[in-house]
Each structure stands twice: as C-alpha cells, then as structure tokens.
Simulated scan of single mutants.
Amino acid sequence: MSAALLPKPQMRRLLARRMKFHLLGAFLVSVGGATLYKFGIAEPRKRAYAEFYKSYDPMKDFQAMKAAGVLECAPPK
C-alpha cells in the first residue's frame, strides 16, 4: 500500500536532463559576465586612453622627465 503512494524515482537520463539545465545556466552566467566586463571595464578604459592620447605630447613629457633627472641617457640641461 505504501509503494503506491510514493512516485517512482527517475533512474534513466537523469544526468542528461540535469546537464541541460546546468549547461544553459553556465552559458548565461558566462555571457552575462563577459558583457558586464566589456561595458563596465573595457569600454571605459578604451575611452580614457583615447581621451588621454588626444592631448598627449611625448616630447613635452620627455623634456619634463629629462629636467627631473629621471632619464640617465639624457643629462638635464
């Protein structure tokens, strides 16, 4: 009588059914993480570099380092 009250457990294809769920979840989490990284870190960093190099003058920077005595190959004048 008690055997009729309990449903039979699924013994076949249990791993395959659970694997579909977990693979889909892992794919969605990885795509979400990649998207957050791209738009939260990579794109702002690229914009910051582009903004910095718009007005960057390497010769002016070289002269400032030379005057400060940072470069050993170019003595300060």
Score class of each variant (00 low, 15 high):
1 M>D: 08
2 S>A: 10
2 S>Q: 08
3 A>G: 11
5 L>I: 09
6 L>Q: 09
7 P>I: 11
9 P>S: 13
9 P>W: 06
10 Q>S: 14
11 M>W: 13
11 M>N: 14
11 M>V: 07
12 R>A: 01
15 L>M: 12
16 A>I: 10
17 R>E: 02
17 R>V: 03
18 R>S: 05
19 M>F: 11
19 M>G: 07
19 M>V: 12
20 K>D: 12
24 L>I: 13
24 L>D: 09
25 G>R: 09
25 G>W: 07
26 A>M: 15
26 A>Y: 11
26 A>F: 15
26 A>E: 14
27 F>M: 15
27 F>Y: 14
27 F>I: 15
28 L>Y: 15
29 V>P: 02
30 S>R: 08
31 V>T: 03
32 G>C: 10
33 G>H: 08
33 G>C: 06
34 A>L: 10
34 A>V: 05
34 A>R: 08
36 L>G: 01
37 Y>T: 04
39 F>G: 01
44 P>D: 02
45 R>I: 08
49 Y>M: 12
51 E>H: 02
53 Y>G: 11
54 K>W: 03
56 Y>F: 15
58 P>K: 03
59 M>G: 06
59 M>T: 07
60 K>C: 12
60 K>S: 14
61 D>L: 13
62 F>M: 10
63 Q>L: 07
63 Q>P: 00
63 Q>V: 03
64 A>E: 01
64 A>Q: 04
65 M>F: 06
65 M>D: 04
66 K>R: 11
67 A>E: 07
68 A>D: 11
72 E>G: 00
72 E>P: 00
73 C>T: 13
73 C>W: 12
74 A>W: 05
74 A>K: 05
77 K>Q: 07
